[in-house]
Protein backbone atom coordinates (compact mmCIF):
# COMPACT_ATOMS: atom_id res chain seq x y z
CA UNK A 1 0.00 0.00 0.00
CA UNK A 2 1.30 3.39 -0.88
CA UNK A 3 0.68 6.24 1.44
CA UNK A 4 0.66 9.72 -0.08
CA UNK A 5 2.72 10.98 2.85
CA UNK A 6 5.83 8.93 2.07
CA UNK A 7 7.35 11.27 -0.50
CA UNK A 8 10.86 12.16 0.42
CA UNK A 9 12.31 15.60 -0.12
CA UNK A 10 14.40 14.17 -2.96
CA UNK A 11 11.34 12.82 -4.69
CA UNK A 12 9.62 16.18 -4.40
CA UNK A 13 12.66 17.96 -5.78
CA UNK A 14 12.96 15.38 -8.59
CA UNK A 15 9.34 15.88 -9.56
CA UNK A 16 9.81 19.63 -9.90
CA UNK A 17 10.93 21.26 -13.13
CA UNK A 18 14.71 21.32 -13.31
CA UNK A 19 14.81 25.12 -13.45
CA UNK A 20 13.80 25.25 -9.82
CA UNK A 21 16.83 23.30 -8.64
CA UNK A 22 19.22 26.24 -8.37
CA UNK A 23 16.74 27.91 -6.02
CA UNK A 24 16.73 24.91 -3.68
CA UNK A 25 20.52 24.99 -3.68
CA UNK A 26 20.38 28.65 -2.78
CA UNK A 27 18.31 27.75 0.22
CA UNK A 28 20.94 25.22 1.28
CA UNK A 29 23.69 27.83 0.94
CA UNK A 30 21.77 30.63 2.58
CA UNK A 31 22.43 29.43 6.11
CA UNK A 32 25.59 28.20 7.77
CA UNK A 33 25.96 26.17 10.93
CA UNK A 34 28.67 26.84 13.49
CA UNK A 35 29.55 25.13 16.73
CA UNK A 36 29.70 27.43 19.75
CA UNK A 37 31.34 26.49 23.05
CA UNK A 38 31.41 28.36 26.34
CA UNK A 39 33.97 27.82 29.09
CA UNK A 40 35.60 29.32 32.15
CA UNK A 41 32.23 29.98 33.80
CA UNK A 42 30.66 31.76 30.82
CA UNK A 43 28.38 28.78 30.26
CA UNK A 44 26.52 29.88 33.40
CA UNK A 45 25.01 32.74 31.38
CA UNK A 46 23.85 30.30 28.69
CA UNK A 47 21.62 27.84 30.57
CA UNK A 48 24.75 26.17 31.96
CA UNK A 49 25.20 24.44 28.63
CA UNK A 50 28.72 24.40 27.20
CA UNK A 51 28.12 23.33 23.64
CA UNK A 52 25.63 24.73 21.12
CA UNK A 53 25.00 24.37 17.40
CA UNK A 54 23.89 27.59 15.81
CA UNK A 55 22.39 28.14 12.35
CA UNK A 56 22.91 31.64 10.94
CA UNK A 57 21.98 33.36 7.70
CA UNK A 58 24.96 33.47 5.33
CA UNK A 59 24.31 37.17 4.62
CA UNK A 60 23.19 39.57 7.30
CA UNK A 61 22.26 43.26 7.49
CA UNK A 62 25.36 45.40 7.78
CA UNK A 63 23.90 47.37 10.64
CA UNK A 64 23.13 44.37 12.80
CA UNK A 65 26.62 43.92 14.14
CA UNK A 66 27.56 47.58 14.03
CA UNK A 67 28.95 48.18 17.49
CA UNK A 68 27.48 51.66 17.61
CA UNK A 69 23.91 50.67 16.87
CA UNK A 70 22.83 47.69 18.90
CA UNK A 71 20.37 45.62 16.87
CA UNK A 72 17.48 45.82 19.27
CA UNK A 73 17.46 49.63 19.17
CA UNK A 74 18.36 50.03 15.50
CA UNK A 75 15.97 47.31 14.40
CA UNK A 76 13.06 48.77 16.30
CA UNK A 77 13.67 52.33 15.17
CA UNK A 78 14.48 51.73 11.56
CA UNK A 79 12.95 48.35 10.83
CA UNK A 80 16.20 47.33 9.20
CA UNK A 81 16.03 43.68 10.15
CA UNK A 82 12.87 43.06 8.16
CA UNK A 83 13.82 45.22 5.24
CA UNK A 84 14.82 43.18 2.17
CA UNK A 85 16.83 45.91 0.54
CA UNK A 86 18.95 46.78 3.60
CA UNK A 87 22.65 46.54 2.78
CA UNK A 88 24.02 43.07 3.53
CA UNK A 89 27.39 41.52 4.26
CA UNK A 90 28.65 37.97 4.82
CA UNK A 91 27.92 36.81 8.36
CA UNK A 92 30.79 37.57 10.72
CA UNK A 93 31.85 36.93 14.29
CA UNK A 94 30.38 40.16 15.59
CA UNK A 95 26.99 39.19 14.20
CA UNK A 96 27.33 35.89 16.06
CA UNK A 97 28.09 37.72 19.34
CA UNK A 98 24.92 39.80 19.05
CA UNK A 99 22.94 36.79 17.88
CA UNK A 100 24.07 34.84 20.97
CA UNK A 101 23.05 37.71 23.21
CA UNK A 102 19.62 37.96 21.59
CA UNK A 103 18.91 34.25 21.27
CA UNK A 104 20.85 32.09 23.72
CA UNK A 105 21.91 34.33 26.60
CA UNK A 106 19.74 33.84 29.64
CA UNK A 107 21.04 36.42 32.10
CA UNK A 108 23.31 39.38 32.72
CA UNK A 109 24.12 40.45 29.15
CA UNK A 110 26.61 43.00 30.57
CA UNK A 111 28.89 40.11 31.58
CA UNK A 112 29.07 39.02 27.94
CA UNK A 113 28.91 42.17 25.79
CA UNK A 114 30.45 45.56 26.44
CA UNK A 115 30.80 48.42 23.94
CA UNK A 116 29.73 46.33 20.97
CA UNK A 117 32.10 43.43 21.51
CA UNK A 118 32.75 40.72 24.08
CA UNK A 119 33.61 42.07 27.48
CA UNK A 120 37.36 42.46 28.09
CA UNK A 121 38.60 39.31 29.83
CA UNK A 122 36.67 36.96 27.57
CA UNK A 123 38.91 34.99 25.23
CA UNK A 124 37.60 34.00 21.82
CA UNK A 125 38.99 31.18 19.68
CA UNK A 126 38.18 30.55 16.04
CA UNK A 127 38.88 26.94 15.09
CA UNK A 128 41.28 26.75 18.03
CA UNK A 129 43.15 29.95 17.21
CA UNK A 130 43.12 33.24 19.11
CA UNK A 131 40.58 35.51 17.39
CA UNK A 132 43.12 38.34 17.56
CA UNK A 133 44.90 36.50 14.72
CA UNK A 134 41.71 36.16 12.71
CA UNK A 135 40.45 39.73 12.55
CA UNK A 136 38.32 39.54 15.72
CA UNK A 137 34.71 40.61 15.05
CA UNK A 138 35.34 41.03 11.35
CA UNK A 139 36.18 37.36 10.87
CA UNK A 140 33.78 35.93 8.28
CA UNK A 141 32.15 32.76 9.55
CA UNK A 142 32.27 29.61 7.45
CA UNK A 143 30.00 26.61 7.62
CA UNK A 144 31.37 24.18 10.25
CA UNK A 145 33.48 26.75 12.14
CA UNK A 146 34.08 26.18 15.84
CA UNK A 147 33.91 29.27 18.01
CA UNK A 148 34.94 29.08 21.68
CA UNK A 149 34.31 31.78 24.30
CA UNK A 150 36.20 31.45 27.59
CA UNK A 151 35.89 33.77 30.55
CA UNK A 152 39.12 34.50 32.40
CA UNK A 153 37.33 36.41 35.11
CA UNK A 154 36.23 33.50 37.27
CA UNK A 155 38.00 32.19 40.35
CA UNK A 156 41.71 31.46 40.73
Amino acid sequence: MLSPATHTLAQILDSRPSTIHPTSLDIVMSTITVKVEFGGGLELLFSNQRSHRVALPARVPVSYSNPFSPPSAAGAEQGIQNSEDAPKKPVDLSYLIFWLRDNLLKERAELFIENGTVRPGILVLVNDADWELEGEGEYQLKDGDEIVFISTLHGG
Binding site: G39, G40, G41, L44, L123, L125, D128, D130, V148, I150, S151, T152, H154, G155
Partner: peptide, 21 residues
Amino acid sequence: YEKEIVMYAYFKKLDYFSTEC
Protein backbone atom coordinates in the same frame (compact mmCIF):
# COMPACT_ATOMS: atom_id res chain seq x y z
CA TYR B 1 49.43 36.79 31.96
CA GLU B 2 46.03 35.44 32.84
CA LYS B 3 45.23 35.17 29.14
CA GLU B 4 48.15 32.81 28.62
CA ILE B 5 47.31 30.77 31.72
CA VAL B 6 43.76 30.25 30.46
CA MET B 7 45.01 29.46 26.93
CA TYR B 8 47.51 27.00 28.38
CA ALA B 9 44.76 25.25 30.34
CA TYR B 10 42.57 25.21 27.22
CA PHE B 11 45.17 23.79 24.84
CA LYS B 12 46.47 21.28 27.40
CA LYS B 13 42.85 20.36 28.16
CA LEU B 14 43.48 20.68 31.89
CA ASP B 15 40.68 19.91 34.26
CA TYR B 16 39.77 23.05 36.22
CA PHE B 17 36.79 24.50 38.01
CA SER B 18 35.40 27.94 37.25
CA THR B 19 32.57 29.35 39.29
CA GLU B 20 32.46 32.61 41.14
CA CYS B 21 32.32 32.35 44.92
